[in-house]
Write a protein that binds this DNA or RNA. Structure first.
Lengths: 189, 189
DNA sequence: TTAGTTAGTGATTGGGCACTAACTTAGTCA
DNA sequence: TGACTAAGTTAGTGCCCAATCACTAACTAA
């Protein structure tokens, strides 16, 4: 048994939660499974977070943050075509390395709709704000043309959906999605 | 109490299931809630379908079928720009009228990933096959240029994601998604 | 060394949910 | 009309799961 500070533990809970929620979504994931992955008892999660919802929210925020950073770093110092290819490649690489991040995003989207109908606005507000941040992050490097940026994001969402559906990298559907970029790893690990 | 043939009942179960699964996804939806919407007792569902999974699958198939028909009818007899606008408009209209169809699609995507990891290939195969049918349906009318078709689908997926996230029709993010087409109704009913 | 704090566990509880089994009611046709 | 069939219900079972509670073990500072 390795002891950690509560903050460090919260960190590892968030990482584990992203992986688990990515698989099963909010309802399909038990707090037990998250605790198992972290290596602590299930009740201890409720010392670190008030409830399951809070764990999901923390995981969602973190996930968006990470994705945003990926784009920021990829675009740093570049413009136009260069920035586009750099960001696209960085994204495909991050999908290969952390497929759970992309799945978690899709789970956030659908969880948003459910939460909103249940009267919970918070998740939706976080998701929409962070999605717009993503849009803005891509906007300047791509030349500040809104149509261009939206097109870029559209292909991003297409990639998200195709990967989530489980189209394998060699499937012909990938031929016309960013010519040079097919998902490299196996989405499922 | 209105009596119906088993086939008719199955029909209404499928319609109810689409609405309910669209909200909560596979795990977030109880068979009870589906039964309530149909107006029958919950155990009776298991006379009409072998289990919950089968209900989800039937709803998924139906949903894909309906979406495909929407595009087919919109594109009938048209080509190029005309076909594109007709299909885009038809899609936006169908979102306004049946927002649950779009949400259900997103739920199918994420359920696919989960099912695949649990060793269940069937849902994934259905979803991927039907998605490709959608692609093919759009392909010819748009001029049989794969890049064009994929671009069209990319915007479709973008719309799906934006609506699911709950961006309201007046939000600026819609300005650069099909100039003439913002979602017209409230996605949540 | 001891008093106090922080990290962590085991047992449990109450509620929900998929699914089963046994029974009832409504049409239908000889 | 009465036997048969198909549509539907009520009651119940066993399982899973979020959250609570009462407790223990490890660290820390005086």
């Amino acid at each position: 048994m390795v002891r950690m500070s509560a903050d460090e533990r919260r960190e590892s809970v968030i990482r584990a939660a992203i992986a688990e929620f990515a698989r099963g979504g909010y309802y399909g994931t038990s707090t037990e499974s998250i605790a198992k992955r972290v290596g602590v008892s299930q009740p201890y999660l409720f010392r670190l977070f008030p409830d399951k919802r809070a764990i999901f929210l923390a995981a969602a925020r973190r996930c968006m943050e990470d994705t945003n950073r990926t784009f920021e770093e990829a675009a740093k110092g570049l413009e136009g075509e260069d920035a586009l290819h750099s960001m696209a490649n960085a994204y495909m690489k991050s999908i290969a390395e952390h497929p759970e991040q992309l799945l978690m995003q899709m789970q956030m989207y659908v969880a948003t709709a459910a939460a909103e109908q249940a009267g919970d606005r918070e998740l939706g507000e976080v998701v929409r704000a962070d999605w717009m941040r993503l849009w803005e992050t891509a906007h300047l490097p791509l030349g500040a043309d809104p149509n261009e940026t939206t097109g870029f994001m559209a292909y991003g969402m297409l990639i998200n959906c195709l990967v989530t559906m489980g189209f394998p990298p060699e499937h012909k559907v990938w031929e016309t999605v960013y010519p040079s970029a097919r998902p490299k790893g196996r989405p499922e690990k």
